[in-house]
Nucleic acid binder design. Structure first.
Length: 583
RNA sequence: CGGGGAGUGGCGCAGCCCGGCAGCGCGCCUCGUUCGGGACGAGGAGGUCGGAGGUUCAAAUCCUCUCUCCCCGACCA
């Protein structure tokens, strides 16, 4: 591409409100422009990088015999009503009507259509297992888009779906995707950690999340330094020691002005782990009274999962008082008609709890004796430093960007949609499904987060919009001609080349080259010609690490360099592959 | 949706408190000089001050309503 003909412009300053490094660089370097909140255009560079990402995705999917198809973005609502997601999925799904007032949706994901395709076609066990993928637009009306391409409302995603005979059959495919995913991120030279995650609204029982660790990430991870426990905080567990003590008699004590757990613990001189904390949630206007030991916090994710709701709000004082509880001095003791959810830790004997009376608490409150819970479950928010459930080692907390995931779907969709097959004895079985997602734009942005320096982007070859960036300096005709010839020759040699043929000063061209981040830069100038040819420098090398190559040797040199870079990425992929769990 | 912030030439910003000619840097155009790390000089173009209503002799500035965008929290690739 000749830059003089290319619709692109670089910016000195990123537009106001562009906060993340990736969004700043991608915008400044001319990869993307924002149209609205969470809605972006990809400019030529961005489109080319996205295609390279997609190319890797296609290769790795096909390598595990997962083949491409394409499903509609605008879909009739019928299938969504069949799986009940029409009602379950909230306003993140855009609903609209066609001219005949039929309900339609802009696809936020494609399980329904994928399952429908399969149920209409598959009849015999002989046809299973298989999987397919597409690279398609999705629209999710996210409550809060952020970070440029990191979290968009409209985005492109590679989503794959697998269809298996049974659980074991599914697990074989799941593992293949796991391996393919490790190869994919390795080929992007993007380090990821694999953590267990919750299925969320996909309705999954097991799932793994491929996460790039980053401060700007939205997910909280808890990882054991021993490498045997890596989870998303939403499903993290920790060990729980419940002392084996005799239950003591309950007793009311005055605790003036002790409204918080810390106040009470200090006043009574007991550790917070001997107190019972009360929390109140409003679930569809019903009060849910939650108890947890004073040294722990409630995980709202776990709680909403437990209550099968995605609307979880703190209850206001009126709703709390209506139950008879007294904010600041609340406990479920003596209350009736209130839904109580207790964390496992609330089983600890002889805790200090509120007396539902201002300035009073109760000593020796015991779950099961002094109050009953409707549900006792693990709803503890695990934090860094808490012991790993595997070996007790303190967990390390970090943040991360989810760049891909793999889900077991079981029969969540095949059940309601009746996607079945007949086995060799004519018995009907429901197909076992999985789904596998990778966001193209999010990966582009995440790779930019990882591969940049102060001057700009620094792409791995697998993601760069071009292999080579020719910088022609000076408006000498001889130089122009040599650069033109070189450009033609590179293009003819199948090397994607960006040719800066603009009449701009050297400083501008070099600065833009650094900003755009193409891996190999070739400078043609009177100085380079005098030195014997063109100057070749890799973006990841220092300024003075360049070499002069005779003009007729440039293509060969570039091919060699390119092969070396691709070879490095392939070795990374091989290493990653070797790390795939085998059990 | 709750909390915080911002909308002024293409981009970054000042001006607003205290109403009175719409400014600065970068970019853009023309000419000349430059030409290996965002050149220099001279001249120039470009703005419904997010929108609507109001107050006033007079509104970017004050008031009301509204739209949009960003950041922090609940969702996810």
């Amino acid at each position: 591409m000749r830059m003089s003909k290319l619709f692109v412009s670089t910016l000195r300053d990123a537009p106001a409100g562009t906060d993340t490094v990736s969004a700043q660089l991608l915008t400044r370097a001319g990869y993307q422009r924002q149209l609205g909140s969470g809605i972006y255009s990809l400019l030529p560079f961005g489109e080319r990088s996205a295609r390279r990402i997609e190319q890797v995705l296609r290769e790795e999917m096909e390598a595990i015999d997962c083949y491409e198809l394409s499903m509609p973005f605008v879909q009739p609502s019928d299938l969504w009503k069949e799986t009940a997601r029409w009602d379950r999925v909230g306003p993140e799904m855009i609903r609209l009507q066609d001219r005949s007032e039929r309900d339609m949706v802009l696809a936020p994901t494609h399980e329904e259509v994928a399952t429908d395709l399969v149920r209409r076609s598959v009849q015999s066990y002989r046809e299973l297992p298989f999987s397919f993928f597409q690279i398609q637009t999705k629209f999710r009306d996210e409550p809060r888009p952020r970070g440029g391409l990191l979290r968009c409302r409209e985005f492109t995603m590679k989503d794959a779906y697998s269809f298996s005979l049974d659980r074991d059959d599914f697990l074989r495919i799941y593992r293949e995707f796991h391996r393919a995913y490790l190869r994919i991120f390795a080929r992007f030279d993007l380090p990821v950690v694999v953590v267990e995650a919750s299925g969320g609204y996909m309705g999954s029982d097991i799932s793994l999340q491929f996460t790039y660790e980053s401060e700007i990430g939205e997910d909280t991870l808890l990882i054991s330094p021993n490498g045997n426990y890596s989870v998303n905080a939403e499903v993290a567990t920790t060990t729980l020691e419940i002392p084996d003590e005799e239950l003591l008699e309950m007793e009311e004590v005055a605790t003036p002005d002790c409204k918080t757990i810390e106040d009470v613990a200090q006043f009574l001189d007991v550790p917070t782990s001997r107190t019972l904390k009360a929390m109140f949630f409003n679930v569809r206007d019903e009060l849910v009274f939650v108890t947890i030991r004073g040294d722990r916090e409630v995980s709202e994710e776990k709680l909403s999962e437990l209550l099968s709701t995605d609307v979880l709000e703190f209850a206001d004082a009126d709703l709390i008082r209506a139950s008879g509880a007294v904010p600041g001095y609340a406990s479920p003791v003596g209350l009736t008609g209130v839904k109580v959810v207790a964390d496992e830790s609330a089983r600890t004997p002889n805790l200090v709890a509120g007396a539902n009376k201002v300035d009073y608490h109760l000593l020796n409150v015991n779950l099961g004796r002094d109050y009953e819970a409707d549900v006792v479950a693990d709803i503890t928010q695990v934090r860094g430093g808490m012991p790993s459930p595997v070996d007790g080692a303190p967990l390390v907390e970090s943040r991360g960007i989810e760049v891909g995931n793999i889900f077991s779907l079981g029969t969540t969709y095949s059940g309601p949609l009746n996607a079945t097959y007949l086995d060799d004895e004519d018995r009907e079985h429901t197909i076992i499904m999985g789904s596998y997602g990778i966001g193209v734009g999010r990966n582009l942005a995440t790779i930019a987060e990882h591969h940049h320096d102060d001057a700009g982007l620094k792409w791995p070859l697998s993601v760069a919009p071009f292999d080579v960036h020719i910088v022609a300096l000076g408006n000498d005709e001889a130089i122009q001609n040599e650069a033109d010839n070189l450009y033609d020759a590179l293009m003819a040699g199948g090397i994607d080349t960006l040719y800066d043929d603009r009449a701009a000063s050297p400083g501008v061209k070099f600065a833009d080259a650094d900003l755009i981040g193409v891996p190999i830069r070739i400078t043609v100038s009177s100085r380079s010609l005098q030195a014997g040819g063109a100057e070749i420098k890799r973006r990841d090398q220092d300024r003075d690490a360049s070499v002069i190559v005779a003009l007729d040797g440039v293509i060969e040199h570039v091919q060699t360099e390119r092969q070396a870079l691709l070879g490095n990425l392939e070795s990374l992929a091989k290493e990653a592959e070797a790390r795939t769990p085998t059990d």
